[in-house]
Amino acid sequence: MRTKLEDCLQAVNQVLLGKEAQVRLALTCLLARGHLLIEDLPGMGKTTLSHALARVMGLSFQRIQFTSDLLPGDILGTSVFDKDTGQFVFHPGPIFAELVLADEINRATPKSQSALLEAMEEGQVTIEGATRPLPEPFFVIATQNPVSQGGTFALPESQLDRFLMRLSLGYPAKAAEKALLLGESRREILPRLDAVLDHAELAAIQQEVTRVRASDALVDYVLRLVEATRSQPQFAWGLSPRASLALLAAARAWAFLAGRDYVIPEDVQAVLPSVVGHRLRERADPTGHGGGALVQWLLTEVAAV
């Protein structure tokens, strides 16, 4: 099973060059049944990453481009009157895919954003009184552009909290970019990617991940981290219990990917920046972007053992 996961990583890395760490985190997020927020400039490979992941995991893929006139119905789907049957027939929206890429989520109005986010949280949507389950597995990758802020609706903290991780891809290394320029177009490679896992296997792995052992000592470390964010003066507010659950879940998935059936402090530290970075604000700058410095502080100052 683990070799298959390694194969998945390898396949995605072939498409998205030089971003092993981010790819591994993205996979971790998927295995921990969390949703992923990618924050980066356009053209950095966000879509490629999501698409490639969907291909190798054998997931159906839908992409929603968020714009300011996007309506909740455009995401969830609408009922349309069928002349033949004389009844309203539900046309499922793009959300009914297993991997949904919500591109530039901050361009849409809060109303549309929350339609997506509710679906993410509940795993089901309620349209016109009927509750419809979303497919299983269900994985959302949302992207947002941190630079051009004109005409955007920044996600509030409560919404950010629903993403397990926030990643940033960043510029590729020189060698990776050279390979990219010399090689085939990504668009041509993508369709050739074969599914490595099927649904049953993915579900089994996700099940397995929850059984990765988190010992007392490890949970104590997580508690120390959370406690530090709640008691230290430089934090505008502390981490929520949802955040501590997310941290532990992500650490479990990371440990599983590393081939261990127990979590060690280093696993927690590996996922910490992407899991808590978007949930923390500095007291000096409560409306700021996030707690990169705070995470560094947590990593160096909270006793790991």
Binding site: I264, Q269, L298, V302, A303, A304
Partner: peptide, 27 residues
Amino acid sequence: QQRLFLRFERLLARHGLRRRTGEGPRA
């Protein structure tokens, strides 16, 4: 267990290697 780990830390500290607060055992 912890006592032995502390002893391990002290042993290495004598050779100039001190574990930083936030450093996990493996690192």
